[in-house]
Design a protein around this nucleic acid. Structure first.
Lengths: 197, 197
DNA sequence: CACTCTTGCATACTCGGAGTATGTATTGTC
DNA sequence: GACAATACATACTCCGAGTATGCAAGAGTG
């Protein structure tokens, strides 16, 4: 190997580990995935994993945050093109549900996340990410609908919970495409209703 | 001990185990609870536990089903007194959120359930219980609102997801009573909106 | 009411996986 | 170039899920 800087080594190793962890956690779930397996899949040993991540939960947390960042970026990207706040909310629903079509995303974000990290931790992570985007969107929409300055955090949470459930429901549908349309309609209805006074 | 019938012995032992399991799973979570601990708390040994429950997951499943039955019974009891379908739906929201005030209920039903049993299994269990009550209520309400025969399963799921999220949100509120009122208002709004065309 | 057969349960294991201790090589600093 | 710090590997410990086996106490049959 060519000599590299420490930062580069760390970057490379954690990158391998995170990629492998996202793969295995996403496919087999947190409980059924061992650190050894992740390390092996990442081309390193358990020692390396424990050098960079204090615990198995910490590794999972990093993967979880990565997924959250992905959703947030997607949400910001797709909704930015919608000038109308309500249209942006609907577009956000669609983006989120489309992400839920990935089994790994569902497993990590919707199933294991809360159980492994605790709800409080998950909430803290999401508050600055997807939930923030949703709440911001609802605030703008509420202002447009003639109810400015209202506190939308609770509404955003409820709507988010509904979206997560829709995502899981979508997963096991016989015809995902048809289900996506039906659930999307319901979700848009719901979010729209929540965003108005 | 006085000589007893086999059925009575089984009944007693599984009862002890389920009570202890509900206590420990509810307090420490599934992962942090060992079968040994449950058995000890129930006054028996691991052997007894594994005689009646094939696996740790099976024991958890039994506890989970017990909680689901509890919710369902409570929902049926409290909503039965409401003559108006919409009032019954609102009452159901209140009942559910009040149950969510119990930490053990949240831990078992909302946090660990999906991760341990898988979403599909959880859905199957709930479909004949709480979700059924909610869907039935929404069907009646939809019929009253002039949209009879509509398929409300998707809506019921979304509303249920929102309620679960509200339950978790309620848990960490500084003032649970005030939060209960605020969230209840939002939840009733949401369920009401979902139940109408 | 003997005699088996089955069921309920305890004790004694195996084994895999999370976390730790320690050694070694590589990089960064003076 | 010596010393420190960091990145990583190897070799453990230990706990807990699941298994094997043994035994005792109902339950069916003559």
């Amino acid at each position: 190997m060519s000599p590299r800087t420490q930062a580069a080594r760390t970057e490379a190793t954690t990158g391998q580990l995170l990629a492998a962890a996202r793969e295995l956690f996403g496919r087999d779930g947190f409980a059924a995935t061992s650190i050894d397996a992740v390390a092996a899949a990442g081309g390193v040993t358990k020692g390396a994993a424990y050098h960079h991540f204090a615990t198995k939960g910490a590794l999972f947390r990093a993967v979880f945050v990565g997924e959250q960042d992905r959703v947030t970026a997607e949400l910001l990207r797709t909704t930015a093109q919608e000038p109308d706040p309500f249209a942006a909310l609907r577009r956000g629903c669609r983006t989120f549900l489309e992400l839920c079509l990935e089994p790994a995303f569902r497993q990590i974000v919707l199933l294991d996340g809360p159980a492994v990290l605790g709800w409080q931790e998950v909430r803290a992570i999401q508050s600055e990410r997807a939930l923030r985007v949703l709440a911001d969107g609802m605030r703008v929409a509420a202002a447009l609908a003639g109810e400015p300055g209202v506190d939308v955090t609770a509404r955003a949470h409820l709507a988010f919970g509904a979206l997560c459930e829709a995502g899981m429901l979508l997963a096991r549908a016989d015809d995902p495409d048809a289900a996506l349309h039906a659930l999307l309609a319901e979700a848009e209805r719901l979010v729209g209703a929540m965003a108005r006074p």
